[in-house]
Write a protein that binds this DNA or RNA. Structure first.
Lengths: 112, 112
DNA sequence: CAATTAGATAGCCATACGGCTAAGTAACTT
DNA sequence: AAGTTACTTAGCCGTATGGCTATCTAATTG
C-alpha cells in the first residue's frame, strides 16, 4: 500500500482528482483520460505517475494502448485516516459530554 | 472554506498529520505542538501555516501564547470528496450488478 | 513498406516546498 | 530595568512539482 504522504499528495491537484473521478466510473485509456485536460501529454503523464505512486491507479498495456483503472482500496486508506481523526475528535466531545454531565450531577448534589 | 487542493496538501506530510491528530484531542499552544517534532521552530511554523491555509486549524494569541485548535468541519470536506468517489465507484458496481442480473434473466429466457 | 497513432523519455524552466540560521518583537519574570 | 520566553520575520538553500518542446519506440493502418 502506498504511504499516506503520496496518497494525499495524489489528491492535492484538480487534474488528478478529475482523473480519479473519471476512473471511478470505469477504466479508460491514457488518451481518453487526457482529453479533457488542456495540457501537453507528457505533463499529463506526470500526473498519472503521481497517481500510480499514490496507489490510486494501476494500468496495463495492450499493443500501444495503456488502460488505467482505479484501485478503490486506496480510497479506504484515506477514509480510514480521516475517520481516525474524527473518532479522536468525537471521543473528545464524548469526554466533554461526560464532563458536562458530571457538572450537572454535581449541581444536583448541590441542590440536595 | 479552503479549496480541496490546499485541504489535501495539508494532509500530504507526516508532521502536519501529526499536528492534526494532536489537535483532534484538544487545543494546544504552538510550542506544545512543535515539541515532538525534531525541526527548528520556523520550519514547524511553515507547517502550521499550510494547515491554516488548508482550513485545518485556526488560532488566536493571548499575550505571547498562540493557541491552535482544529476546525473539524474541514475533515468533512475531505470525507465528502472521498465519499463522492466511492459512490461513483459503487454506482458502477450497482450497474454491473444490474448487468449481471440482466444476463441471468436472459439465461432464464433461454431456458424457457 | 510507408504513414499514422499512442504513448514514453529526456531535458529545460519557473515556482513551490521544506529545511535552516539569524535577527526581531512583544510579553512575562525577576 | 534586565533577562527570558514565545513566537515571528527575513532570507538562504537544495529538491520537488508542474508545465513545456523535441524526440523516440512500438503498434496499427493504408
Amino acid at each position: 500500500m502506498a504511504n499516506l504522504d503520496s496518497i494525499f499528495h495524489g489528491l492535492a491537484d484538480p487534474t488528478r482528482r478529475a482523473v480519479i473521478a473519471r476512473l471511478a466510473t470505469g477504466p479508460a485509456r491514457v488518451s481518453e483520460l487526457a482529453a479533457p485536460h488542456d495540457m501537453a501529454l507528457p505533463s499529463f503523464l506526470k500526473h498519472l505517475k503521481v497517481l500510480e505512486t499514490g496507489g490510486w491507479i494501476e494500468s496495463d498495456k495492450a499493443g500501444r494502448i495503456r488502460t488505467c483503472r482505479l484501485k478503490p482500496e486506496t480510497t479506504k486508506a484515506a477514509e480510514d485516516w480521516l475517520g481516525q481523526q474524527r473518532s479522536l475528535w468525537e471521543g473528545r466531545l464524548d469526554r466533554l459530554d461526560v464532563f458536562l454531565n458530571n457538572l450537572y450531577d454535581e449541581g444536583k448534589n448541590d441542590e440536595a
